[in-house]
Design a protein around this nucleic acid. Structure first.
Lengths: 145, 145
DNA sequence: ATATAAATGCGTATGGTTCGCATTTAGATT
DNA sequence: AATCTAAATGCGAACCATACGCATTTATAT
């Protein structure tokens, strides 16, 4: 299973990164992830895959994946949760349900043609994070019922 | 000093909130704040004001200010810092310098006339957080020099 | 003035993340 | 293929921000 994912990834192993089974396991999890995952989730999924990666190692791997630009870190709901996902080289933002914490992905981005008016006129914008919060379909109907 | 701030705030004391000197001190700090502050900053500023509020109390006060909608919590730089500010009932977003962590405020908001395309069609958007990151004037010139 | 529910002080617990160091391993070199 | 070495991992402990528990104090209603 890990081998298959590695095969799908082909030769795209991050430059200069030593290939260890822990790193392959973490990358496999991130590639299969349907939503951003927190470190503990990643650890748990490597465990069910049959090749447990310790939590501290997960953090170390995430750190270097981020440094290499392979993964990105995002925090939602006022910093309560820190999650990670592969950098898919496209804008991807999420809406989070304040009630059940479901993460819903968004297909467009308000920053596409937006020029921020910044107090410090010479601020060079390099990127942005956007988080939308609200109530998902299920929780919304449950609440108003 | 605290009295003066309280006077400026006038009768706007949050509904049903017991007025204690710790709460007045924290509100005074938030009112005078030129940028969002973390809990430890708030504690430190109450200390220099001459009425130290313990950190755990700061957190408790922030919690209820947020619940009452008087303050808001925001997290920047991927959750590394959690900061708080008064809810000024207008959109206020910030750009953060990735190098010196300076916080620069932004005068417009890309969400003003933006309709998100969400996978979960019935997601009810209640609000959003946006963080812009990049390089501030000082760090940018320092870096490219 | 008194009663009482709520807020605070202060020490401790917690939970997510990082660190230290001994051991193992990947990849280079022979 | 065997050996070497820097880098990665295991594992426990440290760490930091934040939350909690409970005795004491305080704001407000009576």
């Amino acid at each position: 299973m890990i081998e298959r994912d590695a095969a799908e990834r082909g030769s795209e192993w991050p430059d200069g990164m030593k290939k260890t089974k822990q790193r392959e396991a973490v990358l496999a999890v991130l590639e299969r992830a349907e939503k951003p995952l927190c470190a503990a989730d990643i650890r748990a999924r490597t465990e069910t895959d049959g090749s447990l990666v310790r939590l501290s190692t997960v953090y170390r791997i995430l750190e270097i994946l981020i440094k290499k630009g392979v993964a990105v870190k995002l925090s939602i709901l006022g910093g309560e949760t820190t999650v990670y996902e592969l950098n898919r080289f496209r804008h991807r933002h999420y809406a989070v349900c304040v009630s059940c914490r479901k993460i819903v992905s968004m297909d467009n981005c308000p920053m596409e043609r937006f020029v921020p008016k910044l107090e410090d006129g010479d601020f060079r914008v390099m990127g942005h994070n956007l988080e939308i919060y609200g109530s998902c379909k299920d929780c919304d109907t449950a609440g108003s019922r």
